[in-house]
Every structure is written in C-alpha cells, then in structure tokens.
C-alpha cells in the first residue's frame, strides 16, 4: 500500500531522513516512535508530499507520488492526515469542517454531505457538537472532529502526526479510543506517537527512528522480548511504561 525506498531528505545542509526503507501493507498499523527531531513526522509528511524528498522514492499503491502522472490532490483525498495541532478551520462549524471537502471536492449535495458528516461525527461520538464553532470545542473534541473530517473523505490509509501531543492528559484517552476503534475496523494506519501503551496494544509493527534513520523495527511482542539491550528498549524505559 505504502512503500518507502531509500528516502533521503535534507533541510538545507541538515539531513533529516537518511535512507529510509519500509513497507506498510493494507490493513496494517505501524507506529513510529523515537526522540523528537528524529524525523518521524517528516517521514509521514512525505507520503502526501507535504514535504518533498531529495533521494529515493515514496510509493502509494505502487505509484511514485513524485511522478507527474499522480494527481496529488486525488492522492491526498485517499490518504487522510491528522495533525498535532488539529488545524480545524476556525471559520466553519464542526459540521462545516467535514462537509467542505465533501461538497467542494466530491460534489455531494449539501444534504448528502451533511448526512455523511453526521455519520462520521457519530463514529467519534460528537453528533451533539455538529453546529459548534471549533473555538468552543475542547482539544480532545477538536482532534476527534479532525479525525472525522479525514475519515469523511473515505481514505484508504490514515496518517496521524502526534495526534495527542497537544492535548491535556485527561483528553488523550478519548482520542486514542477513536483511533483504536479505527484500527479494529481494519484501517491502514501510520501513527507517530509517544503513547507506548497504544503502540503495544494496536501496532502490527513498531518502527524506531533516531537521527533520521530507521534503526529498529518489530512487533510489540518481539521488541518486548529483545528490549533489554536495544536502543528502543532504552527509549521505551525512558518514556515510561505507558
């Protein structure tokens, strides 16, 4: 579904991604962990070309996303992206945030878009907040609306960029719960997160990144057994039991 082949990226003279290779198959959940500045967010941002790369290839459904034949705007509709800072559109209600893409990109009628949006709001448990403006929602509610906004476009894969890092601790749970339900439903996902508990429970594979390199990978069980001496083990001990 998504394949990274020797991906290199520089910010000026600083190499932030160095020879990353890996594959995410349909229905898999990969969790990216690692210290901040290790390139996790940058890596998933390359998938929808929010970041351009200088070496290697990123393929979605075997198509190089940098090639001219790929319509990036269509690709982005198929690949949902959830930001750390939610990035809801403050001039539109919760519902309006979700229907914008449906009416303007999918060409749905207002009524159909509204119905579809309400379904997604129901999935994240926020039907009663449909007409609220984002400024009046809590952080957790905003992030759930942002997830619903992505899901409404029927993505084949969802990318999460530290979706709980900006939240107060008591709101982390509600967002993780929504993500777990999504994973249980068979969604293909790549999540950048520091929530190790979430990773253990949901991930098919954990990728550990440091200084722009993917230095360790394995299922939560494998990593738990070989944790003792590894870099990942040391990292997991530092961020706590989760």
């Amino acid at each position: 579904m998504i394949r990274f082949e020797n991906v290199d990226k520089w910010f000026g003279t600083l190499q932030v991604l160095a020879g990353i290779s890996g594959e995410v198959r349909r229905g898999e959940v990969k969790v990216l962990v690692g210290p901040s500045g290790s390139g996790k967010s940058t890596l998933i941002r390359t998938v929808t070309r929010l970041e351009t790369i200088q070496g290697g290839r990123v393929l979605v459904d075997d198509a190089d996303i940098a090639s001219r034949s790929v319509d990036i705007n269509r690709l982005r509709q198929r690949v949902g992206f959830v930001f750390q800072a939610y990035n809801l559109f403050p001039h539109l209600s919760a519902l309006g945030n979700i229907t914008l893409g449906l009416t303007k990109l999918r060409g749905l009628s207002k009524a159909a878009a509204r119905e579809r949006a309400m379904e997604e709001l129901a999935r994240v448990g926020l039907t009663e907040k449909a007409d609220e403006m984002p400024g009046l929602l809590s952080g957790g509610q905003k992030q759930r609306v942002a997830i619903a906004r992505s899901l409404a476009m029927d993505p084949q894969v969802m990318l999460f960029d530290e979706p709980t890092s900006a939240l107060d601790p008591e709101m982390v749970g509600e967002v993780l719960a929504a993500m777990k339900r999504l994973a249980a439903g068979g969604m293909t996902m790549i999540c950048v997160t520091h929530e190790i508990g979430f990773a253990r429970e949901v991930a098919d594979e954990i990728w550990f990144m440091e200084a722009g390199r993917l230095i360790e990978r394995g299922s939560p069980a494998e990593l738990a057994s070989s944790q003792a001496g590894s870099r990942l083990g040391a990292f997991l001990r530092k961020v706590g039991p989760g």
């Binding site: 982005r76 509709q77 914008l100």
Partner: peptide
C-alpha cells in the same frame, strides 16, 4: 498549517485559498 490542512484534504492551491 491552515493551508496545509486544506491541501491534505485534497484541495488544490485555488481551493485551499478560496475556501479556507
């Protein structure tokens, strides 16, 4: 981020500018 967010949903340059 508002512009990026609109692009992530699949809007082009004009759509992101015009609607968001």
């Amino acid at each position: 981020a508002q512009y990026e967010s609109a692009r992530s949903i699949g809007f082009g340059y004009l759509g992101a500018m015009g609607y968001v």
